[in-house]
Write a protein that binds this DNA or RNA. Sequence first.
DNA 1: CGCTTATGTGACCGTATAGTCACATTTGAA
DNA 2: TTCAAATGTGACTATACGGTCACATAAGCG
Lengths: 121, 121
Amino acid sequence: MDGGSDHHLDHDLDEVWKALSDPTRRAIMDLLRDGRKTTGELVSSFPGMTRFGVMKHIRVLEEAHLLVHRKEGRTRWNYLNAVPLRRIYERWVSKYEDQWSGALTNLKHIAEADEPKENQT
Amino acid sequence: MDGGSDHHLDHDLDEVWKALSDPTRRAIMDLLRDGRKTTGELVSSFPGMTRFGVMKHIRVLEEAHLLVHRKEGRTRWNYLNAVPLRRIYERWVSKYEDQWSGALTNLKHIAEADEPKENQT
DNA sequence: CGCTTATGTGACCGTATAGTCACATTTGAA
DNA sequence: TTCAAATGTGACTATACGGTCACATAAGCG
């Protein structure tokens, strides 16, 4: 679970992090959380963007393995794949959990340590 | 916890998502998890990059509130702020937790449902 | 005080990317 | 069979951004 294996997973997760950095793509993920959606349905959820733009985002999500699709005739169904999110949690967020319980305490400590010296900030 | 409040938090978290999309910045976060670091120490951790490049990343992290700094004379100490990560978890990852316990099951179900029809893929 | 160390800022540049558009193919319905 | 619906692909464009560089300031030390 540690060492090289994590490093390898971290490398794989770069695409996931990049995919999630865009708000439209996060919104697509949210929509898919409620159940599968056709490409057309996703497109119509973003009236301010052309369908090519939305499709481009769909493609990025798919390449990051956050989305899988199935064709049914002329209809393409898109499904959420939450596994990479789990990887994000395991590799990343969980490692900081022991930090954030004390995060505000740590910041207060820094503030207190700095307070006697007024020439800083 | 739901509705407008979440939406507001989501907007705030855009900077966090963007900040974490870069591998160098994630590496900086990892280094800070072990304890505060001077800018120079962070710079020396990336021998393949100029100090200006590293400093630029530090700035992005700071603007995303993932990092706070304190000056001590000519030395700048950088501290991890894990709170936005907690926000990421609460706003994002946790919402998908009920998804990923069944994620593989869902994907298998899709695969099984598709299997009888061979003209799809 | 002179020199070194630690850090800061703005300009520049090549690459990436979000989004649009032109043109296209395939499937479904009447 | 014709037309509509659903989706696909590559080119283009403006903006973003990761990284370098020139020049700078401020603090520390002997």
